[in-house]
């Protein structure tokens, strides 16, 4: 499903910066993230732990405990309304009603002492003002929509009575309850087995076709995103280092980090390599906001400029942006 260029913009995020004040000092988790999301589009956000992918999305809805977190700057326009500036009351309406959130581990994000029925009907009653009977009818529809067998009889069950895959379906049903404009899914299949992950990915593809909402899919798995996303954004050190349409990114990755990641992955098909290529070194320490390229210490192509200045995202092809000082055509060092 391709997002057309004149599709309506649902979300416009500009220059989000978030840091954490911890006992060991400040951690600059997100260092200026901007992106757009169009109606019906699926944006894959790829990065390793500590790259800032989850913190960025949690910042949009102020889902982080503040303190220790602090959103230093940025705006997030959801259909023209800046979420970052909203007061708590208004923000509570937006969360749940306009933006749905699915987390990695459904066991810790569902309340273990409330029935699944209660947890699905709650947003319907709070945000849509449905009465009890209407909310229950809708809850059954939602559970059927996400493929839970005998939905009506399962409303009175507690989360522990569901398997891992079924719990994630329940989470999806809750997130979809109020028909949000945007669904943010944070590693929703990471805790699941591959055959169950395949079921959930199948479900998400079907729901997209049927409901057409915009989705932000956060993951560390380049394989999952390949089969799902329209566009992909690669994050490193709290910054976007590369962004492109999915086919373009996998066929012509430009940033040395993206290239490195794609090369380190062993494949299920094709020839078996003798030795895996690896990216040397460790992910960056974010005690300081990156003043130079955060990937320079691990990059095989780093030259003088990479250690002094942080490259900005620049368009190198239609819809393809890269933050790298290497020349996009020749791959050689670019003079300052």
């Amino acid at each position: 499903m391709a997002a057309v260029s004149d599709a309506r913009r649902v979300l416009e995020v500009r220059d989000i910066r978030t840091r954490f004040h911890t006992q060991d000092g400040v951690v600059h988790a997100v260092n200026g993230i901007s992106f757009d999301l169009d109606e019906g589009e699926l944006l894959g956000v790829v990065g390793e732990s500590g790259s800032g992918k989850s913190v960025t999305m949690m910042s949009l809805l102020k889902l982080l405990p503040m303190p220790p977190a602090e959103i230093v700057s940025g705006r997030a326009l959801l259909e023209g309304e800046n979420l970052i500036a909203l007061d708590v009351e208004r923000l509570r309406r937006v969360r749940g009603a306009h933006v749905g959130f699915i987390f990695q581990d459904p066991m810790t994000s569902l309340n273990p002492v409330l029935t699944v029925g209660y947890q699905i009907t709650e947003p319907l009653r709070v945000h849509l003002g449905m009465n009890r009977a209407a909310a229950r009818r809708r809850a059954v529809e939602l559970l059927e929509l996400v493929g839970i067998p005998m939905a009506a009889s399962r409303l009175n069950d507690f989360p522990h009575q569901f398997s891992g895959g079924m719990r994630q379906r329940v989470m999806i049903a809750i997130a979809l309850a109020c028909e949000p404009r945007v669904l943010i899914a944070d590693e929703p299949t990471t805790a699941l087995d591959v055959t169950i992950q395949a079921q959930i990915l199948d479900l998400v593809k079907r729901l997209r076709r049927e409901l057409g909402m915009a989705i932000i899919w956060i993951t560390h798995d380049l394989g999952v995103v390949a089969g799902l996303a329209d566009r992909v954004m690669v994050m490193y050190g709290g910054l976007v280092v590369e962004r492109a349409r999915v086919n373009e990114l996998y066929a012509r990755p430009r940033h040395p980090y993206t290239r490195g990641l794609l090369r380190t992955l062993p494949r299920l098909d094709g020839t078996r390599s003798e030795r895996l290529e690896s990216i040397a070194g460790q992910p960056p320490n974010l005690a300081q906001a990156p003043a130079a390229c955060p990937f320079a210490p691990r990059c095989g192509h780093a030259f003088e400029r990479c250690w002094k200045e942080n490259p900005l995202l620049e368009a190198v092809a239609e819809g393809h942006e890269v933050a790298c000082w290497l020349d996009p055509e020749t791959g050689a060092a670019r003079a300052a």
Partner: peptide
Amino acid sequence: ALLSAVPIHDPELE
């Protein structure tokens, strides 16, 4: 089934 469920990092193929 297990092998077919593993996502491959190749959008063309997927």
